[in-house]
Every structure is written in structure tokens, then in C-alpha cells.
Design a protein around this nucleic acid. Structure first.
Length: 149
DNA sequence: GCCAACGTTGGC
DNA sequence: GCCAACGTTGGC
């Protein structure tokens, strides 16, 4: 890949966060399966976020309810298409594949006490299950997790 | 288990 | 269009 192309990819890349309960579909299961179609979203805002995902976008994988924390990074491998788990054509899924676990999981408690993360949708819209993450927020989380990507 | 937040449904 | 009732999510 040319340098210009790499720069272009970085500029158009978007960052996201998806929630899953570890007892329902945790990171380890996700890794064991090598990825999945992200089904079951039945909320318009979350659906719209799924529709805006592009192949290659990085997705923070968040465990909700039990030990709430960002635990890994996934990558979008296919853009939105009809959710195969319903006949209703208004719902979509994307394909996600695991990229890597975070060296250090970033707990919700930690996010709440980090100044640079106070504006995260995770804190402001607690019930949203698929949400955008800004490049600054992404960089902050990766730094906290000792990741240099 | 409790409760706050909030999206949806349905009566008017 | 408003709002009460209700169901779900998710933190604690």
C-alpha cells in the first residue's frame, strides 16, 4: 500500500463501541468463533450506527452488566446487511472479527474517572448498545490500555 | 434485587 | 400531539 493510501484509510476510519453481556456473548466466545454477525440490535439509533460502519473500522468490545469494561478490539469485516435473525427488513447486522484483546481492560469505573472520556456516549447514553467513539477517545483508551496502535 | 434512564406503545 | 403506562437495559 502506498503511504498516501494508508493516510487516506486513517482519515476515513471510524471508531465504534459495541456492548455485549459476557454471560450472553463474551469476548472469549467471540474469539473462539473467529467473529460473528452482530445481531439483535432493535434500536434505531444503534441500527443507524451499524449502517454507518465501514470495513476496517475499529470497534471497542465492551462487556456490560458484569464487570463492565472495554476488553478488546474488533474490526468490521462486512458492512450492514439484513439481520438474518428476523424477517423485519428494518434491522441490520454487520460482520465483526476479533482483532486483539486489550493488554489491560479499561473498566467503566476508570472511564468515569478519566477527564478525556467524560463526553463518551457510553457515559451519556447508558442504554445505547452501538455507538460512535471519537478519535481522541479511541486514542485515550488505547493509551490507558498500554496499546500503541 | 433494586432502581434510574429511556424508548415504545397506545389512549385520548 | 401529548402523556401515562410499560418494557428493557444496565449500573450498583
Amino acid at each position: 500500500m502506498s503511504l498516501l493510501f494508508c493516510i487516506y484509510i486513517l482519515l476515513i476510519m471510524n471508531y465504534w463501541l459495541v456492548k455485549s453481556e459476557p454471560d450472553v456473548y463474551g469476548w472469549d466466545t467471540f474469539v473462539a468463533e473467529g467473529g460473528t454477525f452482530w445481531s439483535g440490535v432493535r434500536n434505531y439509533q444503534a441500527r443507524n450506527n451499524l449502517r454507518n460502519m465501514q470495513v476496517g473500522d475499529l470497534v471497542l468490545y465492551y462487556h456490560s452488566v458484569k464487570n463492565p469494561a472495554v476488553v478488546g478490539i474488533a474490526q468490521v469485516t462486512r458492512t450492514a446487511y439484513q439481520d438474518p435473525t428476523t424477517e423485519d427488513t428494518q434491522w441490520v447486522v454487520v460482520d465483526l472479527a476479533p482483532l486483539k484483546p486489550l493488554k489491560k481492560a479499561i473498566t467503566l469505573a476508570q472511564i468515569k474517572t478519566t477527564d478525556a472520556l467524560q463526553q463518551m456516549a457510553l457515559l451519556r447514553q447508558s442504554r445505547l448498545s452501538v455507538m460512535p467513539v471519537t478519535p481522541d477517545e479511541m486514542a485515550t483508551i488505547l493509551a490507558l490500555a498500554d496499546e500503541n496502535m
